[in-house]
Design a protein around this nucleic acid. Structure first.
Lengths: 126, 126
DNA sequence: CCGTATCCGCCTTGATACTG
DNA sequence: CAGTATCAAGGCGGATACGG
């Protein structure tokens, strides 16, 4: 009935809000860096991951990994040995997220200079 | 000489950092919502934009628009009339960013339920 | 080794008031 | 209409200490 304009979005109100919320969650700095590390290096232990992600604190690593586990992006495997051994790996869902962000990543790489120039031009105005 | 594994990233150290920084900037909640509004509805005035983006404050709208203008994503056009009339529209660069995010948007739409279910499963265990 | 718990500074954000 | 200015509150993230 409604003559909705053509968009790439759902026509169901409220879904957009959920989608935005989800993207906000997922577009977190540490989430993206961890995602990247796991894509590149595969399954990793906690400490190895801490070394792979530059500048992350233990707190943020734990917190972000928990959230990614809850969202179904990573699978956490605990080996009941002493000392403890915990592995993190991407789930198929997590991998698909990485692929979705690939476009943004490529865009950022491709337009790094454009943005840089735009900023310089803007800052030099007046 | 290095036997680098296949990745989608630049092999130049430091570029990744810039790319991450740029994505962090761009993946902001308000930036995405404004981007979406301008893609869907085309050129808009300040007040119209404020109505199109649900829940945004005047401060955040101004701040985000300035940042997007500086980054070269939107063009700001001031019509010197009284009362003031200011239009915002996407630049080609801004539009290309929107297209890059389209993949993430589609992913989020497609996997909304997966994430929802994963969270329920996670919260229900133990 | 793999976390959790606590404290604390800072940055973001929102609310409000004011201006050209 | 389209902003700027100011202030207060809250969350994020780092540092540190401790536990299984």
């Amino acid at each position: 009935m409604e003559n909705q304009p053509l968009t790439r979005h759902s026509d169901t109100p409220g879904v957009d809000a959920l989608v935005n919320e989800l993207i906000g969650r997922v577009a977190d700095k540490w989430t993206l860096l961890i995602l990247e590390s796991l894509e590149e290096h595969g399954e990793q232990r906690f400490t190895a991951l801490a070394r792979l992600v530059p500048g992350i604190s233990q707190k943020m690593l734990t917190q972000t990994l928990r959230q990614m586990e809850r969202d179904g992006f990573v699978q956490r495997t605990v080996h009941p040995v002493i000392p403890p051994h915990v592995d993190y790996r991407l789930t198929p869902l997590g991998h698909s997220l990485g692929e979705a962000f690939c476009g943004v990543w490529l865009w950022a790489e491709a337009h790094l200079r454009d943005v840089h120039d735009a900023r310089n031009a803007f800052d030099a105005r007046d």
